[in-house]
């Protein structure tokens, strides 16, 4: 029955495929895919190079000094006989809006995430999850419209001190926009905490609240911090809401009732206006964009790094 000398395999019918053609195709496809992947690096590189090159051109102008740009507290590129390019009013406006936004999004998002992850009965979950997904899918221009036509009139009717364009209204809208991001990233972090930790605490007679606050939250802390950072980066870079609701007066102020201008708001103003190409105010938008990129990219990089390390801990 056994015949070791014979070829044990049955011959397969058909003609063999060309090995060379296969190898060439394989190589070409691999090269194409590598090209696709390198494209994303090209994007990052061109962002850095273009923004830096134009910013350098801006700093070379006679009207501009680097010291004033980084330390000046007056930003008046369009009006007045003497132009001033001190970026702090723009940063101040950005941070003010971001602070308001985060004071809305972080606590609400954190509590919602804890609720979703640790408490929520399936029925409420089935309502909450889609709600947050819908919120996340709404274009930011819609939030801007909402801030301008609903939140601002509401604020003014509550308190006379609010201006038509104000940081507070824009901040609330940005906060609503960030809420789904905070919630979903935080919930991910909470879910990554092993079930066994919870079981251990419950087994010692802890209440659900004690398990959530004393066990799960501390264990997920770095993941939550990462979620917060990513949300902050989003708030800093948000454009349409502030362009509609925050105004366009670069004020050095911490009063959220006043009109401010953010970095993104300034860029919108320049690109919508008839600022002459290659004039100082046009070039200044590149310098502002560079600052914005450095800030958001920095926060994102740190956030992603913390997030990655957090994930590794629980894998």
């Amino acid at each position: 029955m056994t015949n070791p000398s014979a070829n044990p395999t049955r011959p397969i019918p058909g003609r063999p495929r060309s090995k060379t053609a296969q190898r060439v195709r394989e190589r070409l496809i691999q090269a194409g895919l590598v090209g696709c992947a390198l494209f994303s690096i090209l994007i990052t590189a061109s962002i850095v190079v273009i923004l830096a090159a134009e910013a350098i051109q801006f700093f070379r102008l006679d009207e501009v000094s680097i010291t004033e740009f980084f330390f000046g507290t007056e930003w008046s590129p369009l009006l007045g006989a003497e132009k001033h390019f001190g970026i702090w009013p723009l940063i101040c406006g950005t941070l003010l809006v971001t602070a308001v936004a985060m004071s809305v999004a972080l606590p609400l998002g954190l509590i919602t995430a804890v609720y979703l992850s640790e408490y929520a009965p399936p029925r409420l979950r089935a309502v909450l999850k889609p709600t947050l997904e819908v919120l996340a899918g709404i274009p930011t221009v819609v939030f801007g419209f909402f801030a301008l036509t609903v939140i601002t009139p509401g604020l003014i009717s509550l308190h006379e001190g609010f201006e038509i364009y104000n940081a507070f209204s824009a901040g609330i809208a940005v906060g609503i926009m960030c809420l789904p991001i905070v919630t979903s990233l935080t919930e991910d972090a909470l879910q990554a905490v092993p079930r066994a930790l919870r079981a251990g605490a419950f087994g010692l007679g802890a209440t659900r609240f004690e398990v959530s606050v004393k066990i799960v939250l501390p264990a997920a802390l770095s993941g939550i911090v990462a979620a917060f950072l990513l949300a902050i980066a989003r708030a800093v870079g948000e454009t349409m809401i502030v362009a509609l609701a925050a105004g366009s007066s670069p004020n050095m102020t911490l009063d959220p009732r006043e009109s401010v201008q953010t970095m993104t708001g300034y860029m919108v103003q320049i690109f919508l206006g008839d600022a002459s190409n290659y004039g100082p105010e046009y070039l200044s938008s590149y310098a502002v964009a560079f600052m914005l990129f450095v800030m958001t990219f920095g926060i994102t990089v740190i956030g992603q790094k913390i997030r990655k390390r957090f994930r590794e801990v629980y894998q």
Binding site: I50, A233, T264, A289, Q304
Partner: peptide
């Protein structure tokens, strides 16, 4: 993914 979309606009 974290770069503000207006920066892409400028690029």
């Amino acid at each position: 993914a974290g770069v503000p979309s207006i920066v892409y606009g400028i690029i």
